[in-house]
Each structure stands twice: as C-alpha cells, then as structure tokens.
C-alpha cells in the first residue's frame, strides 16, 4: 500500500485521516442500500405469508386478487419456462460467439464485433419488448399459430437480451486460459476444433458457468420486454405457444392500482424474486472467485509466457 506513516502531528495528516473516514462512510452506501432494500421489501411482503401460508402462496395455482386468492405457482412456472427457453437458445449461441471472438475472428474483426455485441446490452429493454411485439409476435402467430404472445416469444427476446452477458463473461474466461494449453493440444496433433472443444471449453468451464448463471439472473429479472410479448395470462402454460406471466411482470402489471392484501402479495412476489436472484448472484460470485485456482494447476515451467498468461487471467477476473 502506498502512503506509509510519515512524521506524526502534521495537521495535513489529521485532515487526511478525516477524509479517510468520510470515504469509509461513503463506501458503505452500496451495502446500506442493499440492507434498506432487503428490509423494506421483506417488511412489506412477509405479512402475506402469515395470512395465507407459505405453501398457499408459493404453490397456489390461482391468482385472483379481487377475491383475495393469491397463488403464484403459475408465475413461478412462467419465470422458469421463459428463463429455461432463453437459456436453451441463448447459451449455445452465446458460447459460439465467444469461441468465435476469442479463437477464430481475425483481430480486426473482433475489435469491431465485441463492442457491437456489448451494444446489445445497452439497448433499452422496452425497445426489445417493442420489437418483439411488432415483429416476433405476429411472426409466431402466422407461422406457428396460437395468440403469438407466448413462452416462445418471451424466450426468444430474453435469449437475445442475455447474449451480451454470456458472451463477454465466457470470452474473458476463454482468453484467461493459458496459451500453453492450446499449444500443448495442437502439438499433440489435435485439430483446431478438437482443441476448442476438448481443451479450451473444459478449461474455461467455471467462467462459462458463471456467465450462464448471470445471464439466468438477467432473464429472471427482466420485466418490461417480457410484459410486452408474454401475453400475461395467469395460468400455467402447457405448450411453448401459450401465453405466460412471469414473477416480474406480475409485479409491474398490477402495482399501479393494487392496495391492501393485493399490494402485499405483489411485494411478496418481489421477495420470492429477490431470493431467487440473490441465490444466483452468490453462486456466480463463488464460481468466479474459485475460477483461477480450480481451473489452472500451477505450471511446472515458470517462463515469461506463463507469467503473461496469468496476468491476463487476473485481468479477466477483475471484470
């Protein structure tokens, strides 16, 4: 650490310590927001559990706020289906893009493509929802039948929205794999493809898993895009062409006019969502933390080349 103790009783030193304490207070802002957020949402949502029971709320098949019936199983199922669908489409596509950018693309091309893909993350979610509404929903309706507003439409929109997350985190993980791994594989006579599938993907596995989990978190938490294409029926969808309502859209759709128990039930929906997201977050952080140690055993030969590879691994870690 720079700035070891110097001569004491310097007035500037005192001021510096004061600034340090102010900065410490500021640094706790993120933690305090997280605590406040948890506190307020739980305080507002938990009463519904004592009223209709945890089981009745989580496993109830019927959502009829007018009659005081609050069961969110259809929404939990909806979130699971829609997220699952998004992962089925988004993960292979995302991994393919990451492999392409890290191993195949000429440098000049990847320099243009990477920012372009990151720009996908910057497009507002309402715009995705809107494009889904005016392009995808009519397309599904005319080609596959059904109302168009469906699990399928939501999954496709979400698959595109989680692409940037999956691509950039898997890309970093692939770039963090030491060059010597590739060279070893190629030297043993493996082809480029065999090296990518047999050596690179396994070595980058935990980083890829972390990316997928974060993408999953994004898909579960997405609201506006899903509302516009999902159809929002409060029944458990039976086919991919059925309309669906997710946990997030349940909150956003009814928050505007809800009161009393209805409002509490919506906050309780938020509590369920919050818990799911926190589990995913902690999982992803754990996996990212243990990544380098787990994936790359200590190299036997310490050369400048392995040192540079470790450097880039840390670079990937920091993101």
């Amino acid at each position: 650490m720079p700035g070891r103790r110097r001569i004491p009783r310097d007035p500037r030193e005192k001021a510096d310590r004061l600034i340090g304490n102010i900065l410490l207070a500021i640094a706790f802002s993120a933690v305090s927001i997280l605590l406040l957020l948890t506190l307020f949402i739980f305080k507002e949502g938990l009463p519904i559990f004592s009223k209709i029971g945890l089981k009745g709320f989580l496993l109830g098949l019927k959502w009829a706020p007018g009659k005081g019936v609050f069961g969110i199983l259809p929404m939990i199922a909806g979130s699971v289906y829609v997220t699952g669908g998004a992962l089925i489409m988004g993960v292979p596509l995302g991994l393919a893009c990451a492999l392409f950018l890290s191993e195949i693309a000429p440098l000049r091309l990847s320099r243009v493509m990477k920012p372009a893909i990151e720009l996908l993350a910057a497009i507002p979610s309402v715009v995705y929802g809107f494009i889904g509404l005016v392009v995808l929903v009519p397309l599904i309706r005319s080609v596959l039948g059904g109302p168009g507003f469906s699990v399928l439409a939501s999954s496709v929109v979400l698959a595109i929205m989680i692409l940037p997350t999956i691509i950039s985190i898997s890309y970093d993980a692939m770039k963090a794999v030491p060059v010597s791994f590739r060279e070893g594989s190629l030297a043993l006579g493996a082809s480029k493809w065999q090296t990518m599938i047999g050596v690179l993907l396994p070595a980058a596995r935990s980083g890829i898993v972390a990316g997928v989990i974060l993408g999953m978190g994004r898909a579960v938490g997405e609201t506006m895009a899903v509302i516009m294409v999902a159809g929002n029926a409060t029944t458990v969808p039976l086919t991919p062409l059925d309309p669906v309502r997710t946990l997030t859209s349940n909150i956003a759709l009814e928050m505007g006019y809800a009161a009393g128990d209805h409002r509490t039930a919506l906050f309780a929906t938020g509590v369920v969502l919050f818990i799911i997201i926190m589990i995913l977050n902690v999982l992803a952080t754990r996996i990212t933390r243990s990544r380098i140690r787990a994936s790359f055993p200590k190299p036997h030969r310490v050369s400048s080349e392995t040192a540079s590879a470790t450097g880039s691994a840390e670079g990937g870690e920091r993101r």
């Binding site: 406040l36 938490g221 609201t223 997030t248 997201i277």
Partner: peptide
Amino acid sequence: IRFGAECLAGIPSIIFGLFGFLF
C-alpha cells in the same frame, strides 16, 4: 463492501422500482 456492490449489481430493476416506491 464488494459483496454489497456485487449483489446490488445483480438486482433486477423492478425490485429497485419496488424499493424506490416504498422508501
């Protein structure tokens, strides 16, 4: 502090909306 910031980064915007509304 890092843990707080990382968790906050993953929280969906609708939850922020709920929190902002309540708080």
